[in-house]
């Protein structure tokens, strides 16, 4: 945990030692470790002087945070209105069937995690699936299999 503590201290230094920094620090931790380890949350709440119950509330309130590790390939299916109208639900259902996990879960081998997101703001190109940082536009049901076969960072 020592190396992690040093990294977390770095993050805190960016925003300052006060409650207002909580969400920004947690964002950096989520970005770095791909989830919020319990020890990290406890450490941050102590450092910022916030009760753990409040930090835990923040960690479970916002979609961006996860208390469980995300997969190597984090798949986000956009479920915005424009994408919904173009069939996003069936695409999400296909991912669920293929990966055998529910939204918010990660496969046992930690290779894939599946999430849905309300809207990524690329509505003209829907249905959109974001895989890590890559945006896959005009998604179709038969493209789902191809995406999963490639299964790795580009």
């Amino acid at each position: 945990m020592e190396r992690e503590t040093a990294k977390i201290d770095e993050f805190i230094a960016r925003y300052g030692l006060h409650q207002g920094a909580l969400i920004q620090v947690l964002q950096d931790i989520q970005g770095e470790f791909h989830y919020l380890p319990r020890e990290a949350l406890e450490y941050v709440s102590e450092k910022l002087g916030t009760p753990l119950a409040v930090a835990y509330n923040v960690a479970t309130f916002y979609n961006v945070f996860s208390l469980q590790p995300k997969g190597q390939n984090h798949i986000c299916v956009c479920m915005g209105t424009a994408c919904h109208v173009r069939g996003a639900q069936s695409i999400l259902d296909k991912f669920r069937r293929e990966l055998k996990i529910e939204v918010g879960e990660t496969t046992d081998d930690l290779k894939y995690s599946l999430d849905k997101v309300a809207c990524v703001g690329a509505c003209a190109l829907g249905p959109i699936v974001v895989e890590n940082e890559t945006y896959h536009a005009h998604m179709k049901l038969d493209k789902v299999g191809k995406l999963l076969k490639r299964g790795g960072r580009k």
Binding site: P51, A53, N57, T60, F61
Partner: peptide
């Protein structure tokens, strides 16, 4: 003043 309990999720 201890804040031992809170909310989870939304």
């Amino acid at each position: 003043g201890v804040g031992a309990i809170g909310y989870e999720r939304r």
